[in-house]
Simulated assay, not measured.
Amino acid sequence: MNLLGQRWQTFIARRHPPASGSLALVHKRIYIVPTRRGLGLGLLLLISLVGAINYQLSLGFFFTFLLAGIAHSALLRTYAALLGLEIAARPAEAVFAGEAAQFPLALSEKKGRERTGITLLSPDGSATRCDVPQRGEARAAIAVAAPRRGRLTLPRSRIECRAPTGWFVAWSYLTLVSECLVYPRPEANPPPLPFGARSGGGGLQAGQGDDDFAGLREYHPGDAPSRIAWRQAARTDTLLAKTFQSPLASQVLLDWEMLAGLDTEARLSRLAAWILRAEAEGHRYALVIPGFSRPLDHGAAHRAACLAALALFPAEGSGA
């Protein structure tokens, strides 16, 4: 960045400090310049004025000053579209690394006039257009790429208006304090879930029990008579044994230490994938990572808490 660009950025940072919650666009925050159409209009006015002076055409003067008055009115209308507009940041939903975070904003109008052609520009150049009704509110969002896990803050963005003629563009900068949580990118093809639960000694305990009926299997010598499916045996003349499954078989322990062969980011990626799979399949799961432990549970709140812990886990080599 050249010296002029650095000075401009310093000026913008000083003139537009970060604002918590909401901000109102006042005079010193709004800038306006002609667009290419506006410059073309200015050139036309200059040529018309020179021609009217050269040929002493009263109609030429009338046309020139009439068009200049219309342009001045358009300039004021474009500027007024932003003046007094209030913008507030709303909570952003968490996303996974590699996705685009959406930072929702609420645009409020309290001056009693409709604001049309309002455009929000994200740092990558994508635009979102909205109209704000009289004494009403409009919702819009700024999309920001989220390449890495952790906390993503809303960067300085731009709001502008070119209505009603497109001859001028009025703009301001949005420096709202807003954060979005970025979860680790889930592993594409993770291994099967590590079913089991903690035993009394802190290890894993898996599998069979006497709680839930799981199906039938062939009879093996030594099976208890109470396990034999007598009704099926009477109909088919084949001895079958009932099988049962303990709730422990549907409990998942996601332990950091069981992934010792992977680096930090690979562990987080696999744990995120396992959390999503366990939640989708309705299993109760626990998460144990350095500095964080979550007991067996399931549901949206449990899922969010576990993924948030993975998102905020210190990066490898950070010394945290």
Rank of each mutant, 00 (worst) to 15 (best):
A197H: 12
G215S: 02
Y183G: 06
N189D: 15
G282V: 09
G196L: 12
E179T: 15
D210H: 12
L268S: 05
T175D: 15
F195W: 04
L248Y: 00
L239K: 07
R267Q: 10
P194M: 12
F213T: 03
I228S: 00
A272S: 14
S246N: 09
P184L: 10
R235I: 01
L254W: 02
L181K: 05
E281R: 04
K242I: 01
P192W: 04
L276M: 10
H220K: 10
A170E: 08
L204G: 04
R270Y: 02
L276G: 11
G215V: 01
H283P: 05
Y219M: 02
D211K: 03
Y183K: 10
L271F: 08
G202H: 05
E187D: 12
R217M: 04
E179Y: 02
L181C: 14
R235N: 08
A249K: 04
A260K: 09
R231E: 12
W256T: 10
G200Y: 00
Q232L: 10
P186D: 04
F213R: 00
F195Y: 11
E218S: 13
A197E: 12
W171Y: 14
A249V: 01
D263N: 15
A241P: 00
Q205F: 05
D212N: 10
G209W: 01
R231Q: 13
E279A: 14
S246Y: 08
A188W: 03
A197T: 12
Y183M: 08
R231H: 14
P221K: 05
A170L: 08
A272K: 02
E265A: 04
L204I: 13
L204H: 03
D210C: 00
L216H: 01
R277N: 06
I228R: 03
L254E: 09
L262K: 06
G261P: 02
S250W: 06
G207Y: 01
G282S: 10
D263F: 09
S178T: 12
P221H: 13
D237G: 11
A234M: 01
A280S: 14
A188V: 11
P225A: 13
T175H: 15
G261H: 14
T175Y: 05
L259C: 03
R270W: 04
